[in-house]
């Protein structure tokens, strides 16, 4: 077993066990923190497909995160009020919210990807940002679902076999999603598609010269990435029982990129390490000073300068092909 695998297993076991230990010790709040870590990690794993494997620095993933959040919020709101959604009765179900969020985010990703993926570098960043801001302003001016004030979720959507009102159950659902998307990312990275995607990241022309068209590969990666991020957004809304345009803001996109850089770009469990550090710093340093982001910035700077492989690089050594 490689060192990276050992570190990954330790990290995931720690994330699974520690909140229950804390809860047993009389600190139930840590269950919510762990849930937040797991959800942010899911979002970052999604972005890691585009950024880590495909080299696509999307500054618009908050749009997909927010779309997932609104899918959960809108479904919960309609179910609560007994209202139909587009003529259909919708159950207050998490899997339904995920499915709708994934479909909506996937459709938006196809449209934005068809345009943005024809560019690269700073142009790609700016176009993805522009699309995300368009959706952000749309949400602000959408009074039916709270507009700028956002939308409260009075009662969380349900999940079969779980009581989602109980923090431990919500954590376990979030952790299960994290495991599924990590497994998906790992299999995707090591697949032929993943190899072609990573090759396209290195040199588009060279990939084309061996018969691979980079555009559709990148588009598929971008859409998959968006769909996973949408599931995370839906869970984030469930956790907070609230969804607002802030989930769609460009700062959210920035946070997801920070998580990946902190954890290790392209590393399977990198987003988990990144989310762990981010949430711990946010909670711990945030209790000491309002300007905790300054210290996060210092840490990010140190990681970029001294450990391009992120925290996973520090803990587990170089990636297979760093």
């Amino acid at each position: 077993m490689t060192r990276e695998n050992v570190v990954s297993i330790v990290l995931l076991c720690g994330l699974l066990i520690l909140p229950f230990v804390a809860q047993a010790a009389g600190y139930p709040f840590y269950m919510t923190l762990a849930t937040r870590m797991a959800i942010l990690a899911v979002a970052a794993v999604g972005l890691n497909i585009a950024l880590g494997l495909g080299g696509l620095v999307s500054f618009g993933h908050a749009a997909f995160f927010g779309i997932g959040g609104y899918a959960a919020g809108v479904i919960a709101s309609h179910a609560m009020n007994g209202e139909h959604l587009l003529g259909f009765a919708v159950p207050a179900s998490m899997p339904v919210a995920w499915l709708i969020g994934m479909l909506a985010a996937g459709l938006v990703a196809i449209v934005t990807g068809l345009i943005s993926l024809r560019t690269s570098g700073v142009y790609f960043i700016m176009i993805t940002l522009a699309f995300a801001q368009m959706i952000y302003y749309f949400a602000i001016s959408w009074p039916a679902y709270g507009g700028e004030d956002g939308l409260s979720i009075a009662m969380r959507n349900s999940f079969p076999g779980a009581n989602t009102a109980r923090p431990s159950d919500l954590f376990l659902v979030s952790f299960a999603i994290l495991l599924v998307v990590l497994l998906f990312f790992w299999r995707l990275r090591d697949s032929r598609f993943g190899a072609a995607l990573q090759a396209a990241r290195q040199n588009e022309g060279r990939v084309a010269a061996v018969g691979i068209e980079p555009f559709p590969i990148r588009l598929v990666a971008f859409v998959l990435s968006a769909m996973i991020t949408a599931v995370a957004g839906a869970m984030y809304a469930e956790l907070n029982r609230f969804v607002s345009p802030s989930m769609l803001s460009w700062t959210m996109s920035g946070e997801l990129i920070v998580l990946i850089i902190l954890g290790g770009v392209g590393r399977v469990v990198g987003p988990v390490a990144g989310a762990f550090v981010f949430v711990v710093l946010e909670y711990w340093l945030g209790g000491l000073t309002e300007r905790w982001q300054f210290f996060l910035g210092l840490m990010l700077l140190a990681i970029v300068l001294f450990s391009p492989g992120g925290l996973m690089g520090l803990l587990a050594g170089k990636a297979r092909h760093d």
Partner: peptide, 28 residues
């Protein structure tokens, strides 16, 4: 390339971020 022309470019230019197996399988 798909029509049947395989190029071995000057300077080799393998995909450095992939392993040997991935370099081969990606283009198969």
């Amino acid at each position: 390339a798909r029509a049947g022309i395989g190029l071995v470019p000057e300077g080799r230019r393998c995909f450095a971020n992939l392993d040997v197996s991935e370099n081969l399988v990606a283009t198969a």
